[in-house]
């Protein structure tokens, strides 16, 4: 009798739970693509995911003209195996600081630099990348929890997938909302995305 009861409860509960989950996913997906009419906040915690080489160059060309007072504080993330990208970002941030001081504005040190485990190296096989992706995912969840980004800007799949996935998970669970901007690389010419806005070249 007990077992029968249990089963009956689950027969009822499971569809309800699934339905709640599906509704939540649809709700989040619906609001994810929606622009905000006018912003309620003055500044947004911004996570900038740096890829390697050309990806970093493109991203820094954006950071160079981004309104620093809106997108602040800025947290730069790069792969643990990437020694160059964070250095370049630091150089850029320092030069922006100088510009700000010269123009008479008072600037505060608003940038942080963090390294993350990478899900896949260029040239790594798909089989071994399953394991490394799991480690990267765990690290990304931890970083998302710590940083709680409101805006994520990324342009390189390798490092940004775990971070964007955990940011989306946070949205699903209602732990924090973030706007993710994916900026396509100039190197991707043939495959066009229907929902993307094509407004020009970064390089």
């Amino acid at each position: 009798m007990e077992k029968d009861n249990d089963r009956r409860i689950w027969c009822f509960m499971l569809p309800v739970l699934v339905a709640i989950f599906v509704i939540r996913v649809l709700y989040v997906l619906y609001w994810t693509g929606k622009p905000i009419g006018s912003s309620k906040t003055h500044s947004l915690r911004t996570l900038i995911v740096l890829g390697s080489g050309g990806h970093t160059a493109e991203m820094l060309s954006i950071m160079n003209v981004l309104q620093n007072d809106i997108y602040t504080p800025r947290i730069y993330v790069a792969a643990a195996t990437d020694n160059m990208s964070l250095k370049k970002a630091r150089v850029l941030e320092e030069s922006l600081m100088h510009q700000g001081e010269n123009s008479g504005r008072k600037m505060i040190e608003a940038a942080q630099f963090i390294q993350i485990y990478r899900s896949r190296e260029v040239g790594q096989s798909y089989i071994t990348s399953v394991g490394t992706t799991l480690i990267a995912m765990a690290h990304a969840l931890w970083l998302t929890l710590k940083i709680r980004p409101q805006v994520i800007i990324c342009n390189g799949p390798g490092t940004c997938i775990p971070l964007c996935a955990s940011a989306f998970l946070f949205k699903l669970l209602g732990l924090g909302w973030s706007h993710i901007f994916y900026v396509e690389s100039i190197a991707r010419l043939k495959k066009k995305f229907r929902r993307a806005h094509y407004v020009g070249c970064l390089m």
Partner: peptide, 12 residues
């Protein structure tokens, strides 16, 4: 143009 698009989306 990319930055303008982001600002517009976020309501700035």
């Amino acid at each position: 143009p990319v930055v303008r698009l982001m600002n517009k989306f976020l309501g700035f």
